[in-house]
Design a protein around this nucleic acid. Structure first.
Length: 587
RNA sequence: GUCCCCGUAGCUCAGCUGGAUAGAGCAUCGGAUUUCUAAUCCGACGGUCGCAGGUUCAAGUCCUGCCGGGGACGCCA
């Protein structure tokens, strides 16, 4: 679409007396396809020309009527707009060879220039179960890593584990009273959670426990061997459990150092803050006063001298800058922490870090729960692992029921298939909406496989796959992503794809690249998710039409439609891959 | 109290830097399969875009105020 918009703008620009770029920017899409594919609004011209917009539109259309513009079949005034009608055959000729020629690389580019971009995501607190509320950061962050990769960056996925802080003091405090290593080995994280809950129960009657906890964290920070040993044990037990979830989701990190990694790097930060005169004592704690920037007061050291979240994040930011020299550093962390990151950026600025504005908090809305009955094995918490397992089980049921109904055998890769579908459903469900929205967890929605869902996209890709497998043509067997595929696609009879529905599909496929760029700029995976739904829907409309069969005796038609179908599949596969969603070969 | 996010169809959401008759999915109702997978498709129903002002040729989109929901605001992370 971009290419035709450009072309249209080039011809319009001299007529309206402004440059091509600004004209191109004004060109939009008409509300209905029978009004054309491109629309130039004439309202802004009305004042300078002292004429009515529809009249101007008519004049411009008149002036362009005689001009041959490759790929554009007609230019008409439609009310106050000058609309261009893109030639479906030309669009197909332009787009399909590119998709089939580039294959898995279609839509991608190297605009990122190989720059490293740290992406801080998931980052669960150890010693606490991996709840469904961790899904958002985990899945959005993972998608951003994929999108950045597709844009030519080298993202560095960082799992900034919450493995340091007073919470471990709490755990150590209760451990002294009740700790049982055998139970820990047997029950794992559930036991840690139980201890944590018990600590908070006891604290209600005995508030002094919180002081004990703070003291134990201080001991931990000061290197007490027993505290260290226990802390490491808690960490290992937790990590082993998180790993199961990451395996289910197919996520791996480039770097899993947590907050504890920075314990010996905070001193330098504090010293620098001190030497730059940024520190202040306040109620016996050490703070950076940001009141004049309307960012409140940022605590960097507690009364007892131990450190805080911000202190560690400052050290981590510095470490990342030193390690990666990033054009941008992403923190996929809930919107509730907006103030924390604003403070962090401001402190970095005050420290003279020129790169402070490359630090980018990517907030997302909260996950809430409609009621408390949805709880699973650990009190009030819904475990992400349980949700995934449930989705996979339901996917399996669906596959088996479907096979039954059609009198077929179960597929031999049943479990693998169920896994891809179940996980795809859960992941896509989280990615399809703008990330800043709060979401209310709803089993029914998460486990839905129909409509605007991951399985819908997977299904669309899968049915194309098996249809193509039935065709016995060069166009169906040639490997995509090769020059041969490109050449074959260039050779199709594009006139076969000149219809309105085909054109809309081709333009949607062509739009994938633009959606990628917008998604990366805005750090918003849903923009790609939306485009994928559009592509799938446009294809499904064609595919369900009984008068539109891909495979037929007419070789020219068959090859043209095969090229279109394969391009559709490729676009879906690529986009889903960026989002971190697997695409099964068959469903 | 101050600040941030959200408010669009019964439900869940799109709506690009303001542009034509506000679009999808789910739900409900009605259809479509002897031929490429019905996890699909087609159609119907369904909207004072929270409210009130303002800016503009043009406002769901920008500004102000108010209402409603969520969140943040020093010794948790």
């Amino acid at each position: 679409m971009t290419r035709f918009r450009r072309l249209f703008a080039e011809h319009l620009a001299p007529l309206v007396g402004s440059d091509v770029d600004s004209v191109a920017e004004q060109i939009g899409a008409p509300p209905k396809p029978d009004m054309g594919q491109l629309a130039f609004p004439c309202f802004p011209l009305a004042k300078e020309r002292r004429s009515a917009p529809p009249k101007i539109a008519a004049e411009l259309a008149e002036q362009l009527a005689g001009t041959e513009i490759p790929g554009i079949v007609a230019i008409k005034a439609v009310g106050p707009y000058v609309n261009a009608f893109v030639d479906g055959a030309a669009a197909a000729r332009a787009v399909l060879p590119e998709v089939l020629g580039r294959g898995a690389a279609f839509g991608t580019h190297d605009g990122g220039g190989g720059a490293q971009v740290p992406v801080d995501f998931s980052s669960p607190n150890i010693a606490k179960p991996f709840g469904i509320h961790h899904l958002r950061s985990t899945v959005i962050g993972h998608a951003l890593v994929g999108l950045l990769t597709a844009s030519g960056y080298r993202p560095v996925g960082i799992n900034h584990l919450g493995d340091w802080g007073t919470q471990f003091g709490q755990l150590l405090a209760i451990w002294e009273k009740k700790g049982d290593e055998e139970r820990l080995t047997a029950e794992g994280i559930d036991y840690l959670l139980a201890l944590y809950i018990e600590f908070n129960e006891l604290k209600k009657d005995d508030p002094s426990l919180q002081d004990v906890a703070r003291d134990r964290f201080k001991k931990l920070e000061d290197g007490d061997p027993e505290c260290r040993r226990l802390w490491k044990l808690f960490r290992d037990v937790s990590l082993a459990e998180f790993e199961r979830v990451y395996a289910l989701l197919g996520i791996r990190f480039d770097d899993t150092r947590g907050e504890s990694f920075y314990e010996d790097r905070m001193g330098a930060v504090l010293d620098e803050l001190e030497s730059k005169g940024l520190l202040k004592e306040s109620d016996d704690a050490t703070v950076v006063d940001l009141e004049e920037y309307e960012l409140g007061v940022a605590l960097v050291k507690k009364r007892d001298g131990s450190t805080l979240y911000l202190t560690r994040d400052l050290a981590a930011a510095q470490f990342r800058w030193d390690s990666y020299d990033f054009p941008r550093a992403l923190y996929v962390v809930g919107a509730a922490q907006a103030l924390h990151f604003a403070q962090m950026k401001k402190v970095l600025e005050l420290m003279g870090r020129t790169w402070h504005d490359r630090v980018d908090h990517i907030p997302f809305g909260m996950m809430r729960f409609a009621d408390r009955k949805m709880a699973t094995r650990s009190g009030d918490i819904i475990l992400l692992e349980d949700v995934l397992t449930e989705a996979i089980a339901l996917a399996k049921e669906t596959i088996v029921a479907g096979a039954n109904e059609k009198g077929r055998e179960n597929p031999d890769d049943l479990d693998e298939l169920a896994h891809a579908i179940g996980v795809g459903a859960v992941v896509f469900n989280d990615l399809k909406n703008r990330r800043t929205r709060d979401v209310v967890f709803d089993w029914k929605q998460v486990l839905s496989f129909e409509g605007e869902t991951g399985p819908y996209l997977q299904y669309t890709a899968a049915r194309i796959g098996s249809m193509v497998a039935k065709a016995e043509r060069a166009m169906s067997t040639v490997a995509v992503g090769t020059d041969e595929a490109r050449t074959l696609a260039e050779g199709i009879d594009a006139a076969q794809l000149a219809g309105q529905d085909e054109l809309r599909l081709v333009l949607a496929i062509d739009g994938l690249r633009e959606s990628l760029d917008r998604a990366v700029t805005a750090a918003e995976p849903s923009l790609v998710a939306d485009k994928l739904l559009e592509i799938a829907a446009r294809f499904s409309t064609l595919y369900s039409n009984r008068d539109w069969k891909v495979l037929s005796d007419d070789e020219a038609t068959t090859d043209a439609r095969l090229a279109l179908a394969r391009a559709t599949r490729q676009a879906l596969v690529n986009g889903l891959d960026w989002l971190g969603i697997p695409v099964p070969a068959r469903m």
